[in-house]
Amino acid sequence: MLDFLWHLRGSVTLSSAAGHDVTLDRLEVLLEKQGKPLAERTSSRISFDDPLWRNPLGANWRPLVIYDHGRFWVEQGPGERRLRYDLRSLHGMVFCLFAAGMFFCIGLTGGGVLRAAKFALFAFGWLYGMNMVLALIRVPLLIRRTVRAT
């Protein structure tokens, strides 16, 4: 329904030269560099689970920092292989909603409910929206570059 607000889903066409293991090995190295602990690895899938409160003062410049959970899996279709991914930023969204609530309360002290709502909406849009815009640009490029590396 509205889960597109906290999910990033996509896919990348894989070359036939690299096998499942090579692709997943590359993703495992990527997750390690991004500071995302590996939760599960099978022959065709890899996942991480990293709540935002685990390391709140960590490296905030990394592309995957906003995502608290993610899955990558390889699908074999007729004539092509695809890497699919589903990344979740629910914890980040909840944090930004909480911050927007604080800005709403601050806005109430300066003038009516309408002004407070505008203040809160701006704060949420700035905090969460800017993080997601950056992630929508950086993350697919990073994943594509990682799995297509030679």
Rank of each mutant, 00 (worst) to 15 (best):
V113R: 12
R81E: 07
I137H: 09
G70Q: 02
G101P: 01
G19R: 11
L2R: 11
W73R: 07
T23F: 01
L5F: 14
N55L: 03
L8E: 04
M1C: 06
P78M: 11
I143M: 02
A149H: 13
T146N: 09
N55I: 03
L141V: 10
E32F: 10
C105Y: 15
E28C: 06
G70M: 03
L2Y: 13
L14N: 05
Y67S: 01
E75V: 11
F119P: 00
D3L: 10
R88D: 11
W6V: 07
L83A: 05
F98L: 14
A135K: 02
S89T: 04
C105G: 14
M102L: 15
L8Y: 03
A17Q: 14
L108Y: 02
G110D: 05
F4E: 05
A99R: 03
G92K: 01
G107S: 04
R54H: 06
V74M: 12
P56K: 07
L83Q: 06
C96W: 10
I66H: 05
G125E: 08
H20T: 10
H20S: 15
T42Y: 09
P78H: 11
G79V: 09
R54F: 08
E80H: 07
P78Q: 13
V113H: 12
G77D: 13
F104W: 15
T146E: 11
D25C: 01
G35F: 01
A117P: 01
E80D: 10
A120M: 06
L14W: 03
R144M: 07
K33M: 09
I137A: 13
G58C: 05
S15V: 08
T13R: 15
Y128N: 02
A149W: 12
M93Y: 04
L134D: 15
L114C: 06
A117L: 15
Q76Y: 08
K36Q: 06
R41D: 07
V12I: 14
H91F: 12
F48V: 04
A149S: 14
I106E: 08
L142N: 01
R144L: 12
H91Y: 11
S43G: 14
L97D: 02
R148F: 03
D25N: 10
D3P: 07
G92C: 07
G77A: 15
A120D: 05
G125H: 08
V133D: 09
D50W: 01
E28M: 09
D49C: 03
R9I: 06
P56V: 13
T109G: 11
L52M: 10
K33F: 07
R84K: 13
R84H: 14
P140G: 05
D25K: 00
R9L: 07
F48G: 04
R81N: 05
Y128E: 00
L142D: 02
L141C: 08
S44C: 07
V74A: 09
V12N: 09
V65M: 05
N60G: 13
G70T: 04
G112W: 03
H69E: 10
Y67D: 02
P37F: 00
G125Q: 06
T13L: 14
L97S: 06
R84D: 05
L24F: 00
D21G: 03
S15D: 15
M93T: 05
I66G: 01
L31N: 03
R115V: 12
L134T: 08
R62D: 07
D49N: 12
R9W: 02
G35Y: 00
K36T: 02
V22I: 12
F103H: 01
V133S: 12
F119V: 02
G79H: 11
I143W: 00
A100C: 11
Y67F: 15
G92E: 04
H20G: 09
